[in-house]
Simulated scan of single mutants.
Amino acid sequence: MRVALLTYSTRPRGGVVHTLALAEALAAAGADVTVWTLARGGGFFRPVDPRVRLELVPFPDVPGEAVGPRILRSIALLRAAFRPHDFDVVHAQDCISANAVDRCVRTVHHLDHFTTPELAACHERAIVRPEAHVTVSSTVAAQLRAGWGIAATVIPNGVDAARFAAAVPLVRERPYVLSVGGIEPRKGSIDLLDAFAHARRTLPGLELVIAGGETLFDYRDYRTAWQARADALGLAPDVLGPVRHDELPSLVAGAAAFAFPSTKEGFGLAALEALAADVPVVARDLPVLREVFGSSVRYGHDPQSLGAALVDAVRHGKGDPALASSYTWEEAARRHLEFYGGLA
């Protein structure tokens, strides 16, 4: 079976991490897999199994380009390069790649609301046009059914649990709470500041570390508001930006707690990686996270309750390597191949 997996970037965002791990697991299961992507900033952020072919479509940076034109240019460049007739299955992993092809399967990782017209239209078309849909959680599948009458097949993500379980914890001067995903509205970054400030009243030696942040979108206004709130609270978080793939497990394993206050998620892969490293997780109380994590994490619904949960996690918490290990890419690949076989 010749499978094309399409994604929009080479940088370490959740959908890209999913695409590469799934591609490698499909190839290990015997599929002929090619990953197509826009080469934003060069090659992929990590080495890829040589059994997976890579098609990197050059995507040069245009200084000052707004989000809307960038979305349209992304779709046009990927559409012009892609060769659909070379494949039995075309599987798009995001709205840009789903808009770049005429027929595809689509994984809907999570649903969002955009105000940029081009992005809002991209998001809608990428839901209604695909011939079949996959979601990584039952919660997102229910949202698709309620909002669009679409029946999706649920195939959870895998987790590279062994990679995080084996990590040597990073040692820093002070214990730290870690958040991965950068500073943006969907990650609940401003709420995280208030939650951390609440926690630090009890644990004054605690530090906040924020990793990640590669994105297509322009969050400068939000980041300005975030910095103003940090200043008002007297906080100086250590904002690392993107972290090297081989350094991330140690950073995660060294954390006293992992903060996951996202306002929207489809699965929660980064938090499961923390659980694999035996690090306690504090998450926003969302139905999808209740579905995936159950009682393995602490929940909060606002900054005060998130902060209280952080204090409890740092003092008494632990991870859940068994839960993380229960989600495997091998099983995800098996279920995808079964799903692909049923498309005919």
Rank of each mutant, 00 (worst) to 15 (best):
A92Q: 05
G205C: 07
L208Y: 04
R70A: 14
T7M: 07
A162H: 04
L269D: 08
Y219C: 06
D218T: 03
R172H: 02
A80V: 13
I183K: 07
L233S: 06
S262W: 00
A195M: 04
T224A: 15
S295K: 09
L286Q: 10
K187V: 14
D191Q: 09
C104A: 12
K318D: 05
A66N: 00
P261V: 14
A271W: 00
R229I: 15
G15E: 13
R53H: 11
D278Q: 02
E184S: 15
R2F: 05
K318S: 14
A256I: 13
E273D: 06
G213K: 00
A31W: 00
V180A: 07
V16K: 01
E184I: 13
V134S: 09
S97H: 03
Q304W: 04
L119M: 09
S295V: 09
A195R: 02
E184C: 12
S189A: 13
E214T: 09
W148Q: 06
D302A: 08
L275I: 15
V288Q: 07
A274W: 01
I75R: 01
F59M: 14
G307V: 07
R79F: 02
F258H: 03
V128Q: 09
F87V: 13
H123Y: 11
L144G: 14
A121P: 04
L78A: 06
T7G: 09
F196V: 14
G64C: 07
R129F: 08
E273Q: 12
A165C: 09
E330S: 15
P12F: 00
E247M: 00
P63H: 08
Q227L: 10
E124C: 02
G234F: 04
T215Y: 02
A270Q: 03
H133I: 14
P303K: 10
H109I: 10
A259N: 02
L56H: 06
I183A: 06
P58C: 09
P169R: 09
A165F: 01
R2W: 03
R106E: 13
P249F: 05
L6G: 11
W329K: 00
A274S: 07
A121T: 15
G241W: 01
A142P: 06
R172G: 08
F258K: 04
T37F: 05
S295Y: 00
T202C: 04
A195E: 09
D160F: 00
R229G: 13
G317F: 02
P60S: 10
V48I: 15
P156H: 04
R290C: 11
D160L: 02
H133A: 13
L216T: 12
T107M: 07
A277R: 08
P130L: 08
A230S: 10
T7D: 11
A228I: 11
V57T: 11
C104S: 12
D32S: 12
R70W: 03
R290F: 01
F45R: 01
S250Y: 00
